[in-house]
Design a protein around this nucleic acid. Structure first.
Lengths: 339, 339
DNA sequence: AGAACTTACTGAACCGGATAAGTGACGTGA
DNA sequence: TCACGTCACTTATCCGGTTCAGTAAGTTCT
């Protein structure tokens, strides 16, 4: 089956290719009557502009890219990225932008992919996640002048806009809540320590604990996987000064932590309170359902997509905070059992 | 920064554009010495062929598409698709193919996306998942002659190749195992009932139960979400003839079922054995860890990608079974408590 | 030695849109 | 009435690759 082109439409309408192009793109240069006739024909024969031809003649590729830099076994279970992608799509689909995905192994590999996408003119812009300190990707994106939006921050990203959620505010709320419940020994199982938002959370966690007189507030670094999260939890629970509450940096680790506590015969929440970060359906799935720091990840993604499309359109995009995760108390938090 | 083109290379090497194209594509028509000189220059200046130009001159778009037809709240937590995508990527990245993703709401919307992708020449082929009976998408793909691979089956897909895993064999193994443990009252919480592989599983489940003398083998239809899976489990557990074992069609529902059992004061596995389908990290995360029907979803995806790339290359691709999920016993299954 | 063939290229057309420049018809004002 | 401007187009060029049809050398065969 042959794809219809503007030449086909031009022939049918008895006009030139140029006229068809003007008509379909809402450009001046054709009369309203002709435009409507052309649009009607285009619809009738099911015309879709060849994206390659369009991209080649200097217009945009109508596609944006996302690289995922996590091992497959984490990606499959980590709900965050799929939520983000759903959010992207809501905005992208509405403007007929495609999303191009690539799973990469390392930030260096990621840079290669950016260079290739740029050289191939495959994407008009990219989403960048997992911002690090002095992130090497930023310089490359600026050198290529590839429009981008950084998801996570705030950090130093030069002219590239960022969008982040208020991690410090969220962790502060969680700690205050636990302290209000009567907890004095609070620990945290953190995400990958070299990610900027992990550092933000750690700093805020330490500050709020200090300000509330919680001295031995400890953060155990982890990597977002269930295995590591479970191990970290076990290490915390066999220590001398066992915490009565643990905040986890994602929900997968929180679920793993819950399983470890149960396996050790601890009652959640009586013996141990658990707070999860990011409130995917996972949190309400387990027993007891997990108290979580909820944020609308889909909306977070949609916001980022709007930013990126604006950047692609050449608008100046400013950094934005996408709101604070708020605490959703469920069955996994309670006052600590009196010793 | 200007993107280097073959014209730049041609000028540097003192040859014509055509020679450069032949050299870089491994076509005959240039001497080995010239080829190496050209390749060296291309590497030096960081040349990447403009994908739009390449696609426009009749070659392939070097991209394949995947549509995801599930609500965002399911996608975010369902590990299956991310596992599949990781598997795709392993093959696609090796051959510099891009993966274009689109989240859709309905099969009709999905068809629209296929038509648009085809018209735009955006993709060379597509992955099709969630095969239904008399699936409307198949006819459209055949009409468009858009190369495709169906993931799931077997079913009637005409000239379009399928790849599936042996669902019947897997459910048979699970039921035999439970019966060997001493279970006589076995239920199943199924996936979306109009999906072909759900029907395959249901048929096989009924058959093996009948052959083993399990009369009241019941399948409760569900939709792969934790909420529905939990509700279905609750309905089964409050019935008069409570099952002693339940097989779930995915791991998310199994985890939700476990939570429901625990919330009802039942001990897993003593009072209720649980078998999950698809063994994502989720299964070993909860307590007790779930016995699961494991299959290598990444490899499944990689296999599908190889098939699709072959189909894109014009090879005749035959249907293939990608292996049977095998039972991985963990802590959620045991002989039933004697009444 | 000359025809026939191979090798290693060159030049130009082509893909399907976007767009700048050109053109003829018509209306308008002095 | 004629210069001028505007409208509604047409024509031609461009984007950056691929590929087909030459073509000028060198090689082989008789």
């Amino acid at each position: 089956m042959k794809r219809p082109t503007i030449a086909d439409i031009a022939q049918r309408a008895g006009v030139s290719k140029g006229a068809v192009s003007y008509a379909l793109n809402g450009q001046p240069g054709v009369s309203e009557a002709t435009r409507q006739r052309i649009v009607a024909i285009a619809r009738e024969i099911g015309f879709n502009p060849n994206s390659a031809a369009r991209a080649l003649s200097g217009a945009t590729a109508k596609a944006v890219g996302l690289t995922l830099c996590r091992p497959a076994r984490i990606l499959s279970i980590e709900p965050f990225f799929m939520g983000l992608i759903s959010g992207f799509e809501a905005e992208l689909a509405a403007r007929s932008y495609a999303l191009t995905l690539q799973v990469v192994a390392t930030p260096e590999h990621e840079i290669e992919v950016y260079r290739r996408w740029w050289g191939e003119r495959r994407v008009d812009g990219v989403f960048v996640s997992d911002l690090r300190e002095n992130d090497v990707r930023i310089a490359v994106l600026q050198e290529l002048q590839l429009p981008a939006v950084v998801i996570g921050g705030p950090g130093n990203t030069g002219t590239i806009a960022q969008i982040w959620s208020d991690d410090a505010g969220a962790v502060t709320e969680a700690v205050r809540y636990l302290v209000a419940l009567g907890h004095r020994r609070i620990a945290r199982v953190g995400g990958l320590p070299d990610l900027l938002h992990t550092q933000t959370r750690t700093r805020a966690f330490n500050e709020v604990c200090a300000s509330l007189g919680i001295d031995n507030a400890v953060t155990v670094p982890s990597d977002y996987t269930g295995e590591e999260g479970g191990r970290a939890t076990r290490r915390l629970l066999i220590g001398a000064d066992r915490p009565t509450a643990i905040i986890f940096d994602n929900d997968v680790m929180a679920v793993a932590g819950l399983a470890v506590a149960q396996e050790m015969g601890l009652n959640v929440p009586a013996d141990l309170s658990i707070v999860a970060w990011d409130d995917s359906p996972l949190c309400s799935l387990v027993h007891p359902p997990l108290t979580a720091l909820s944020r609308d990840i889909s909306e977070y993604g949609a916001h980022a997509a709007r930013q990126l499309l604006a950047a692609v359109a050449g608008e100046r995009v400013t950094n934005a905070e996408a709101g604070t995760a708020h605490l959703t108390p469920r069955g996994s938090t309670a006052p600590p059992r009196q010793p």
